[in-house]
Design a protein around this nucleic acid. Sequence first.
DNA 1: TTGTACGCGTTATCAT
DNA 2: ATGATAACGCGTACAA
Lengths: 339, 339
Amino acid sequence: MSTKTPVTLKFLAQKLKVSISTVSKALNDYPTINAYTKERVKQMAAELHFTPNKSALNLQIQKSYTIGIILPDLMDHYFTRSIFGIEQYARQHGYNVIIGQSYDDLKKEVDLANMLLKSRIDGLIIAISKNTENFDHLDLFENLGLPIIYYGRNPSFNLSCHKVLSNTYQGCYKATDFLIKRGHKRVAYLGGPKMISFTHDRFKGYINALNDSNIPFEASLVAYTDFDQANTHNAIKELFYNRENPPTALVAFKEQILFDAMKYLRSNKYEKMDQTEFIGFGNMPFIRYLDNPPLASIEENPESMGENAIKLLLKLIDQKTEAIEYQEIMVDCELVLHQ
Amino acid sequence: MSTKTPVTLKFLAQKLKVSISTVSKALNDYPTINAYTKERVKQMAAELHFTPNKSALNLQIQKSYTIGIILPDLMDHYFTRSIFGIEQYARQHGYNVIIGQSYDDLKKEVDLANMLLKSRIDGLIIAISKNTENFDHLDLFENLGLPIIYYGRNPSFNLSCHKVLSNTYQGCYKATDFLIKRGHKRVAYLGGPKMISFTHDRFKGYINALNDSNIPFEASLVAYTDFDQANTHNAIKELFYNRENPPTALVAFKEQILFDAMKYLRSNKYEKMDQTEFIGFGNMPFIRYLDNPPLASIEENPESMGENAIKLLLKLIDQKTEAIEYQEIMVDCELVLHQ
DNA sequence: TTGTACGCGTTATCAT
DNA sequence: ATGATAACGCGTACAA
């Protein structure tokens, strides 16, 4: 009861008075092993709860059947949901998954990458931190022949790589177009941080939707913010106050930002609140708890993005052939109505 | 560029024309190795980006420096936040962390446990699924001498084990007492599923707070629900409608439930809404987006719970001595005001 | 039908 | 100061 002897093939072999390889073969159903012997071995293995040691296996087959995921933050439902898509498919195909959070900190991201390197993962799926401009820690993987999929966040600096991203352009086009079709002539766009490429992709969707409906673009209907509440309030002041013609609809970069904006307008008793319609990116689950939810959400389908990422990754892992062309997969967004 | 030779000690040794053990010792700063040799070896190792193979190390030292976490769902901020506490402390002490989601499904939980067993983790921290009544898959760990900490969810059926839990009794007492001190004579309690022990622990806190203030208990001020919206609406009808003296304050099992309740009352224009005060368990981050937030939240401090769990686990791992007494750690809750 | 021997990458012990 | 060897647990080619 006190000093545990680990249950290994060797241990089983000694107990059964056969050789180690007989035990191994029996457990792996080798046809050359006597049925009775197999029975004895399997019986004893079950009784003692034998489980093959993964480290030993990895060492032997030179493969870990493990893939790594690095992402900024599990508190962000976008990423948490993406894991669901990855995990499902990975497990079905015999792969395990190690998740690491960088907390949007480059140093943590580098540490995680090195840890995963030591663990000899077979491939990596990563949503880079917002400060990742140097890719040395990730290039190590490619140099070793380990495939990387960049997903969820666009590594603008790192052009030649596999990417799986939400089609944020299409999502923003769809939302803007939807608002126009509902009769809005004055649709505003509230963008996110300007360093993030998605901010500009979405802007393109916005402006193309306007163009396609022959609505003239008006610079004063566009403002930018980040995840700081005060900055969002300022942007909203710009867009909605001290002007003759405030917008009648708004498309926002992220629902977190949108909710700050809506709360600000409502608590300041913005008089045209009831005639103004709002759409943001995210489709967060707690929208059901809001007394006055936005008109709709742009659902980015993170699960599907995750699934696309893992599918591509496993293809690259299996394909021991020469590296295939770099892929860029875009996952379409949908509009989800709340009212 | 095409057929990668893995960078191992052997590979380095061949390149440098020294023995494998010299390389190993040089990299590990053995005092017996010539300074110049060390330099040469380290130089080459850095150049070729050598990283020791974790599987080989694990095999050799019979320890993985990895701990497993099994929890129901990363979409639940309570668990996601608990990871933060675990990760920080674990990494500081040289341990890695593997996270697995059971999605509250016993079969998935068993699969995860077996996977972690194969991976030869050094210990496990688990929040059991709501269906976990049989503990065979977890007893395997204890039989192997691997410590388990049950956390976040109370395994009522499995008495002799280490537990780290939120002190839900104390939290509910505090909230109820706070409401009483604010002048409320009629405080209601909306409990969660009756199978969950926390439901009853919280009830005890509620009723003890009443007693300590000499407020008579009234059965009609207590109702139960689960995470289904319709059931919550029914419970709220019971508590607030068709009666002379509805409660003037409510303590709810979980904020998800509380928000459903508040939205229901508000959208039905419950006339005394403005004089009624609400408190729920959770302190969810999106409360800042609500136009009418509850009075306060009971903050369960999941990070601290995670940290307590990992601290105890590492103590048990290091302590190769005979198993110490089973511990039950309670993490106190705090009241966080929103108005 | 079963057993022996080797190698995966690493460290530690014991030569040299 | 350096090198040879064994061991960790496993699968498999080859020998018996």
